[in-house]
């Protein structure tokens, strides 16, 4: 047998954390499918929750005709973008919000003695395809809204739009992670963080012009959720920003995403360092 003290060199093209993520996520997915009835029921629950949420959006637009200058079709694009981004972030990272539980139960210690990033382990724990029950309907609503709103498409525009969507997912996941990291410092921070994460999601499901300038500026420059649905919609519909911010901001999504991810990584590292020097 090889000397186990010498580090093994396994050739690989994909970064290790990604490999580990895929391996863990796949194992959990397989487990989820071992209880098909439970999975079906939970997926149905998630789908119906989207139906309920979207139903409320439709009712508002139906009654209002136009909401803050946005038609129902445009409202569907906003909702679809927000729900798809949050759904995807939830699929990939949602479980990190249970950090506090993991600390209290000692599971975080167990994760720390494995040669795999504890963030990857935590994010994949209980990874479940039921969350597609949010993403797929959301993408359907987005597609329908875009078809109805009928903006002019070019190949370049489609590409930029796709990049903005991915940026939105990264921003959501980052906000989520920063919120979860508060639990390293304050045990009961989960629900307070939820008011930002879930509250943010609720906020971005409508055109931000609804909320007035103060809030739009807050979610543009502090918790940058404006880049999840609002700025991409202004871009794809080619509309001027009704809240008076520069139109060039709509292209800032990718840069904001990189920045948000960096802040989230820093929050995670700081939190973990704090944990490893206090054990609590």
């Amino acid at each position: 047998m090889a000397d186990p003290i010498a580090p093994r060199r396994v050739p690989h093209l994909v970064p290790r954390p990604v490999q580990d993520y895929a391996r863990l996520a796949w194992t959990w997915t397989r487990t989820a499918f071992q209880y098909p009835a439970g999975l079906a029921l939970m997926t149905t629950g998630v789908v119906l929750s989207v139906v309920a949420e979207f139903g409320a959006v439709l009712v508002v637009f139906w009654r209002a005709g136009e909401l803050a200058g946005f038609s129902m079709a445009e409202g569907m694009v906003v909702y679809g973008l927000a729900a798809a981004a949050f759904g995807t972030a939830d699929l990939l990272m949602g479980n990190v919000e249970r950090l506090g539980e993991r600390i209290r139960s000692g599971e975080l210690d167990t994760m720390l003695v494995r040669p795999v990033s504890p963030l990857v382990q935590m994010a994949t724990d209980d990874f479940s395809p039921r969350r597609l029950g949010k993403i797929l309907p959301a993408l359907g609503i987005l597609a329908a809204g875009l078809w109805w709103a009928a903006p002019e498409w070019t190949a370049g525009k489609a590409l930029v739009f796709a990049v903005l969507m991915v940026s939105g997912v990264v921003i959501c996941a980052s906000v989520w992670l920063v919120g979860a990291c508060l639990q390293f410092f304050v045990a009961d921070a989960r629900e307070a963080a939820n008011s930002v994460t879930y509250g943010g999601q609720a906020l971005t499901e409508y055109p931000l012009a609804v909320y007035g300038q103060g809030i739009v500026r807050a979610v543009t420059f502090t918790v940058p959720l404006a880049f999840v649905s609002w700025q991409p919609v202004l871009y794809v519909l080619d509309r001027p920003d009704p809240t008076g911010l520069p139109d060039a901001l709509r292209f800032a999504g990718p840069a904001v995403a990189v920045l948000a991810a960096a802040v989230a990584a820093l929050a995670w590292r700081t939190g973990l360092r704090h944990y490893r020097s206090t054990g609590s």
Partner: peptide, 12 residues
């Protein structure tokens, strides 16, 4: 972590 094995009896 790759060089040592760790077991916590209180949790799995």
């Amino acid at each position: 972590a790759r060089r040592i094995g760790v077991v916590f009896g209180q949790r799995t």
